[in-house]
Design a protein around this nucleic acid. Sequence first.
DNA 1: GTCTATAGATAGATAGAC
DNA 2: GTCTATCTATCTATAGAC
Lengths: 223, 223
Amino acid sequence: MKRPISTLAQGQRIAADSELLPPAVTPKGAKGKVLNAALQLFAQAGYGATSVRDICKAAKVQTTTLYSHFPSKEHVLAEIIGLGYAEHYKRIKDALAASADEPLARLAAVVRAHVISHCEYPMLAVVANTESHFLSPELAESVVVTLQQSETVLAEILLQCQEAGVFDVPDIYLALRAIGGMGMRVAFWYEPGCGMTPQHVADTYAEFALRLVGAGKPSPSLC
Amino acid sequence: MKRPISTLAQGQRIAADSELLPPAVTPKGAKGKVLNAALQLFAQAGYGATSVRDICKAAKVQTTTLYSHFPSKEHVLAEIIGLGYAEHYKRIKDALAASADEPLARLAAVVRAHVISHCEYPMLAVVANTESHFLSPELAESVVVTLQQSETVLAEILLQCQEAGVFDVPDIYLALRAIGGMGMRVAFWYEPGCGMTPQHVADTYAEFALRLVGAGKPSPSLC
DNA sequence: GTCTATAGATAGATAGAC
DNA sequence: GTCTATCTATCTATAGAC
């Protein structure tokens, strides 16, 4: 075991500190600066412990500028979570489109995309996964749909695998939870300087997922 | 797939709402009421979004009573997290003491204890896992030791398995992360009314863990 | 341990000039 | 979009009587 176990710096909730929002979907100007600053603070300190003043200070804008782009602090959170779920879902769909049309290959592709997006946008993943309960019902509704789509994709693939008889698993619901959960935790500990590429982590987790459902080859990686 | 996927109620971060602190370690009187109220609020809303007034209102005590038991709000969090890590570590040690002295049996025992403690004390697990970054270095130090002990136990068992040649796994560090992570997520979705006992979840996850490291039997549960 | 009262700081959000 | 100034509410924490 060459790598350290629990070594988060003081006051840090997640290890990575690099990538924020996907550049392609980041608004230009003050709005983008606010979103990236808020993302970083929400990820490390949490929504409830971050003030509008904190966000504006980090983004180097005035509080009035924030309120000219967003009706409230809650809308900032909603936009971040919406972008996060959208990016995650897009990566899963792209991976499936490039995958062979065979149940096990599709399962591996989804797990790989799930893990890579958690490695590359860990702050987005952490905020989406641990802060969404701060959203009011109206704002939550507009955002949770995409999350459910992503979960449905994985669930359907697991059902396809089961129907095709390609594996045997004691409880398919728990398999979904376990595979999803181990990928989600990646966002908390992965950082670019840890000595592993996102691809290595993703390949290994895909192998873990296949083994978990009883379909993995004992040793050589499938990917 | 009979059970629902993402169905957290509005404003809820975790599904369960029943068990709080282990009764055996809960102080009597006002202090215990404060700790249980704070645990519930920290788990659902987060430390930063919970005020001392919120805690005292839920505990039905005055704010001055809280300050007669704790020097600050941060000390309340520290005591909760300390109790959580201690309970988790105790369960792992107890499970190992009752387990056969054989690497795979020990691995299964640790995973089972890990999962069961996350089912039975989900709020404690969520607060310990997502709020500990609010602790100052001094308070964090006194608490993180127990967490590292628990992680070391799992790491050493995985190394024993590897040295004994009982399984083959591409990356033992990632196996540790994956097994730990899938168990930690259980705290967010498990609730007593979900139709599964903690033992069922624990048995299944132990099977998943053995498969993940290449040592699981294809179909019948080992536990 | 419990109460009332409050200090001193900071919260989210807004007004209105430029 | 940016600025200064500010409103009102709430925050953590304490003082001091009982």
